[in-house]
Amino acid sequence: MAAELEYESVLCVKPDVSVYRIPPRASNRGYRASDWKLDQPDWTGRLRITSKGKIAYIKLEDKVSGELFAQAPVEQYPGIAVETVTDSSRYFVIRIQDGTGRSAFIGIGFTDRGDAFDFNVSLQDHFKWVKQETEISKESQEMDNRPKLDLGFKEGQTIKLSIGNITAKKGGASKPRASGTGGLSLLPPPPGGKVTIPPPSSSVAISNHVTPPPIPKSNHGGNDSDILLDLDSPAPVSTSAPAPVSTSNDLWGDFSTASSSVPNQAPQPSNWVQF
């Protein structure tokens, strides 16, 4: 966002601040408030800290009219624009600007130590936020500079998907179920049960709807597609039921025997033998 479009927010307001002319700083040490005429401030007024974008402004204003007396733009803290004195926590040196590229160092002081603390923390918080913003924008810029992975299709590019024999089942969902199978048709066949090849008449009946599932060769030959196909395979009510599965050596023979005793589930055994 362009700087001139950014909002100015107020970080801190202190209604009572003293301003001092200060002697030039000795080059080998920091400022000392004890060198100032602390009991004779050169100006008193209100202090506000505002921020616009990343820059903070310390504004000295008339207590009554609010007219701007002087302001100090601060681009970093701690930095040259705001310095603490070496001998007190209540006094600071700020660099005010006249707007034409000239600046002057003046001393400011708070009678209340808490006000000085607030002043300090307001600036610290603002520049902590600036640091985070800078890091975030740097990271997002690095992300933008990485080559992008383009997984889109090129102009006119096509791909061909081959998904088993799913096309054979198209339209099968709306096919009415044979009555009498009830909820039992949702159950998958027991794994590795004895397999009987369906008689020709049965496979003719279902060839209009689905391709007959592959016959497992062994106990490990079954797969998930067999189970799924069970959902739509019709119970061959209209066809002649195949011979019942031999129960002499079939682990699951009891099921066909038991279900055949229930009248309306008579076609059920023929449903199992397809697998």
Partner: peptide, 16 residues
């Protein structure tokens, strides 16, 4: 700004 009335003699060109 009014600060110049009081502190005008303190202002110097801001070093870059």
């Amino acid at each position: 700004p009014p600060a110049l009335d009081i502190f005008g003699d303190l202002f110097e060109s801001t070093p870059e």
